[in-house]
Design a protein around this nucleic acid. Structure first.
Lengths: 193, 193
DNA sequence: CGCGGAACTTGACACTGACTAGATTGCGGC
DNA sequence: GCCGCAATCTAGTCAGTGTCAAGTTCCGCG
């Protein structure tokens, strides 16, 4: 279907998004060009702008998709799971490695329309899912220490994912989630006497 | 001095680098334009290319500077310091927050000339400095656990710095190094019964 | 049927990175 | 002193890009 060339594309928005994700995955967000994406979808050079407003709008849509998928992945860790924080970190890393293009765009806010309502909402959903990893603890045990531990887990997961994706680590891991769990369990090294 | 307009700029290379760092700090690396930098330095539009080859060359020079400065900062933590890994992480975070433009470029290798010898050398110096935080332990105590702890410390520092710089944290910290030390000391949260 | 608006095209403009050829300068060697 | 020469910078050009305005085609709904 849709093999016949019609004036209307059918699902140009999705086609542009998919092409964009592919380009970002292989060459980075800096290699994105609206005109190139238009060529890949075999439409005119200005067609993409019709769906996303401008380049930042396209990236905003990608980031929104990303935050939503991340929120889903994090929420999938049931409350009461043993090592819940660790497990959420593992999902975080898994998401980053599985959706590198989304991840790359999500944390470069200067490329986005920061005031877009869908983006803000999706970000809030992901943020809420993250917080739930900490806030399930009984109120009596919450406090600066617990919040710090949550931030530490987030930083650990985010840093590990970012280093992995930027190719800074010697050898890329084939099971990043498992590697993260090991990392999470590693206690600070005892000092030499 | 050098107020008189001469054909030769004097130190155009440094002037371009400084202007570039300023632009990146305020608007991100995507906002960099060689022609804009040339205008800021009041030279012709093709002058920057003479010093750096191309845009990637300019960013490579910045990344090289960054890795060198990071290596210096890390090496400044003397061997035998108590909580050495933690302290190196604190310096890492301090560097990132103090040199956000360098940091932003250093970990986007697709923007750089990855095969530039100066870059590789600087990266190696920084990497060596990082490793020294782990390798000072007696051989008997080294092993997968110690290496993992080193990677965990690096990930923690990198992640915290990246989240901080991307504005993902609720409120920016005025003493990120101290915040990192607290993070480092936070043990994984004990699971609810 | 026809008509209003959404989806797309066409054309234009200013801007960018990169390349080339040429002008100017300062510096080392004599 | 000055002369050649390489380094530095200028000027012009080209293809490619984002964005805007105006036109064209087509779908769905009354």
């Amino acid at each position: 279907m849709a093999a016949t060339r019609t004036y209307h594309h059918g699902d140009l928005r999705r086609a542009i998004l998919s092409a964009a994700l592919e380009v970002i995955r292989s060459d980075g967000v800096a290699a994105i060009s609206l005109r190139d994406l238009a060529r890949r979808a075999e439409v005119s050079h200005a067609a993409p702008a019709h769906h996303f407003g401008d380049k930042a709008g396209l990236l905003t849509a990608i980031a929104t998709e990303g935050f939503d998928a991340l929120a889903v992945a994090l929420t999938a860790v049931p409350a009461g799971t043993a090592h819940r924080l660790r497990e959420m970190g593992a999902r975080y890393v898994e998401f980053a490695v599985g959706h590198p293009a989304h991840f790359e765009v999500m944390f470069q806010p200067r490329l986005l329309h920061g005031d877009a309502p869908e983006l803000i909402a999706a970000k809030e959903r992901a943020s809420q899912a993250l917080r739930s990893g900490v806030e399930e603890f009984p109120a009596a045990r919450r406090g600066p220490d617990v919040r710090r531990a949550g931030l530490a887990a987030w930083s650990l997961a985010h840093g590990f994912a970012a280093l992995q994706l930027s190719g800074s680590l010697p050898l890329p891991d084939d099971d990043p989630a498992a590697a993260f769990r090991a990392l999470f369990d590693a206690r600070p090294v005892p000092e030499a006497p």
